[in-house]
Nucleic acid binder design. Structure first.
Lengths: 210, 210
DNA sequence: AGCGTGCTGCTTGTATCCTAGTTGTACATC
DNA sequence: GATGTACAACTAGGATACAAGCAGCACGCT
């Protein structure tokens, strides 16, 4: 009746700790320490750390401990590229029916994005933008692809949080570009979509550049 | 000085067992059973099974056991789509220098493919073809993307083994299509590459269809 | 016969104990 | 003072013990 296993709790705990800065990148965490914090034994903590390593959050060194990974700028960029590849593929695979329904699905989202940006509510905007981009992958109707994408978005969220990334200097332009992407997707023009997506990326995150 | 951990051995053992048919899809395997086979305790076996679940080989049911997953035709198709998306993305991201070196890297491979096909050596051909396709992902110079691709190729190999897939009725045409893909990639024409890749796929695996 | 109940043998989940490797430090030695 | 070395305090990996859940089956009741 516990609902979730101890290993799940440990996983959520450490993952949360990494996200909220309790465990900054570069810090070492030991099974004992985590187990003590949660009043459980090392066994489920080990399972959780193994899973977190597989998901790319930490790196376990034999007989040394688990190091909270630093996301290098290269990794952030690479993750973004893969995300873009999957979003474009989603648009490419989409059938006419799915594309028709896309606009009604996303117009509400776009309006909310605009509101959030005008209100200066970046966390909400980030969440909305991530859902917006995810919709293009959903479009492809490929569950495997979507699962991979979700894992990457996970990482992206972390990098956004860490860099306190302002997204852009020109909020209105981001909305415009989003509308443009929606147009491309609706038209089924995946090549244009891919190109615009890259431009969108390079403009939005010019700051973290490198 | 052990070289590899017990957990690694367990992982390789079960993975191999699934691949060579010792553990057919639908069969249940228990930690105790595997542990006994390898003369080790349940602990490393447990870690291995968790990893295998994460990699999509088995599904662990609480208090019931680990079920060797059946790869549905839909999943096989989905994996192929993702692979294609990544290969196309690799070509798309490639710079001129990488594209120049591509032909010299792959001409040898193509010749070997032809030899293997003419000799009726399908296992060798499969291996070569997988390396051939992988090269396009490498082209993009994105390690994250390549890691994802490798994991998918893993699954593909399994599906090929299980379906005893003949690849095609017309070996020579496969070679021709591969040469065509190389041409597209060398020219940097990623849109054409993506299109030809899909055609290649649908022709090559028309048999398993559905 | 049909149905419910509890027993039995399985499974994984968790805790604890033991082993072995690594690292930093204090101390002896040069 | 610099350097090498032994040791103490960590670490994770593995083995084992115990707890708890699920499923099938036999048995007894209706």
């Amino acid at each position: 009746m516990t609902g979730e296993s101890a290993a799940d709790r440990a996983h959520a705990f450490v993952r949360g700790g990494i996200m909220d800065g309790t465990y900054p990148p570069g810090s070492m965490l030991s099974e004992n320490e985590v187990a003590a914090s949660l009043a459980m034994s090392r066994t489920p903590v080990r399972a959780a750390l193994a899973r977190l390593q597989d998901e790319g959050w930490v790196r376990i060194y034999a007989q040394r401990g688990a190091l909270v990974r630093e996301l290098t700028p290269a990794e952030v960029r690479e993750s973004a590229e893969v995300r873009h590849a999957l979003e474009s593929a989603g648009v490419r695979r989409a059938g006419p029916r799915e594309r028709e329904r896309l606009r009604e699905q996303l117009t509400g989202n776009l309006d909310e994005q605009e509101r959030a940006l005008n209100a200066g509510d970046f966390p909400t905007f980030t969440k909305l933008a991530m859902r917006f981009h995810r919709a293009f992958v959903e479009l492809g109707g490929n569950a495997t692809m979507l699962a991979m994408y979700d894992r990457l978005q996970d990482r992206q969220q972390l990098s956004i949080i860490r860099s306190a990334d302002r997204i852009t200097d020109d909020p209105q332009q981001v909305i415009e570009e989003h509308r443009g992407l929606l147009d491309d997707a609706e038209a089924g023009d995946w090549a244009a979509f891919a190109t615009h997506l890259d431009e969108h990326q390079s403009r939005s995150h010019a700051l973290e550049g490198r």
